[in-house]
Design a protein around this nucleic acid. Structure first.
Length: 304
DNA sequence: CTTCTTGTTACTGA
DNA sequence: ATCAGTAACAAGAA
């Protein structure tokens, strides 16, 4: 499940790989992955353009593209950039291969093993393929077809961006701001952390980990939290997401980076998917319940 | 066969 | 208005 650290890892890697590359061909193998425009229009808008920037808001990737300079830009009104938005939802992947890889990539096998296997692309989960002029390819794979791609103009992008809360790794995240957003809210801390309008980019894994690091049960209502507890949530949100980005995210089952490799944060998980196992801090048993409609993991001893 | 899973939105009822 | 709860979406695992 790609959350902020996983999406940020993909963003950083792809920035090095595809910026400045001109799109030669777009293949839509499954129309369900496209939102809005028709397949023909989608292709037409992209082909011949190059990606000039990759941005991220929460879990949403924002690829800025435009025609390369000297390709119909001169002599007329400056051509406005457009934006390709990609949301990976639960099982979306962006896999990049150079022309030399012969449609095969060496990837980590999955589960908890570091074994390498060959992944042949495209496969049955490949929904969209971008081919660049240098013959390298970017595959959008999505097992469950919840993820989507769509093209928007700048105005629409601003509207979409406005719906997101503060970026947790930006300087915009301050204790004062968090206290402000929490004020007068009565929801539980897990639902608060999951709500993208409050803080952008936290999903089920990191919400549970932030609660554990803060010693707070996910079911606790915001109006029952002391200022000190709120401060711990603020500190740990930043700390955990930063560390997870450093470790290139968490591969729980499906997540892969753009090279097909797993994230390393799974070694650092204290509660997520550890139900029935011993708490690394107190030796008690980690419990799994349901909070905010999601599977929720916590230590009954360490979290109050 | 049924149940469960995740991110997000839409909807209902309080 | 605000919040909690749940269905829906797709497809696979158990």
């Amino acid at each position: 499940m790609p959350e902020l650290p996983e999406v940020e890892t993909i963003r950083r890697d792809l920035e090095k790989k595809i910026l400045g590359k001109r799109i030669f061909k777009v293949e839509v193998k499954d129309q369900r992955s496209l939102q809005g425009k028709s397949v023909a229009k989608f292709k037409k808008e992209l082909i011949g353009n190059e990606f000039i920037d990759i941005d991220r808001r929460g879990k949403l990737l924002i690829f800025k593209f435009s025609l390369p300079s000297g390709e119909g830009n001169e002599g007329c009104v400056k051509r406005a950039s457009k934006f390709l938005l990609i949301h990976l939802k639960m099982t979306g992947q962006l896999l990049y291969m150079t022309r030399d890889s012969d449609n095969m990539m060496q990837v980590t096998a999955g589960g908890h093993s570091d074994k390498k296997i060959n992944l042949k692309l495209p496969n049955s989960h490949t929904r969209i393929i971008f081919e660049f002029f240098d013959k390298s390819k970017l595959y959008f794979n999505d097992l469950r077809v919840f993820g989507y791609l769509k093209i928007v103009d700048e105005k629409k992008l601003r509207e979409i961006e406005a719906k997101f809360g503060v970026e947790p790794l930006s300087l915009g995240l301050t204790l004062g701001l968090i206290l402000g957003i929490m004020k007068n809210k009565k929801t539980n801390i897990k639902a608060f952390l999951l709500n993208q309008k409050n803080i952008a980019g936290i999903g089920n894994i990191y919400a549970d980990e932030i609660c554990f690091a803060s010693g707070i049960r996910p079911s606790r209502k915001l109006d029952s939290l002391s200022d000190e507890e709120k401060r711990r949530i603020f500190k740990n949100t930043r700390k955990i997401l930063k560390l997870a980005v450093e470790k290139r995210g968490t591969t729980f089952n499906n997540y892969r980076d753009s090279d097909g490799n797993q994230g390393n944060f799974i070694k650092y998980l204290k509660v997520f998917d550890r139900q029935g196992e011993e708490c690394k801090q107190c030796g008690g048993i980690i419990k799994k319940t349901r909070v905010a409609g999601r599977g929720t993991h916590y230590c009954p001893t360490c979290q109050r």
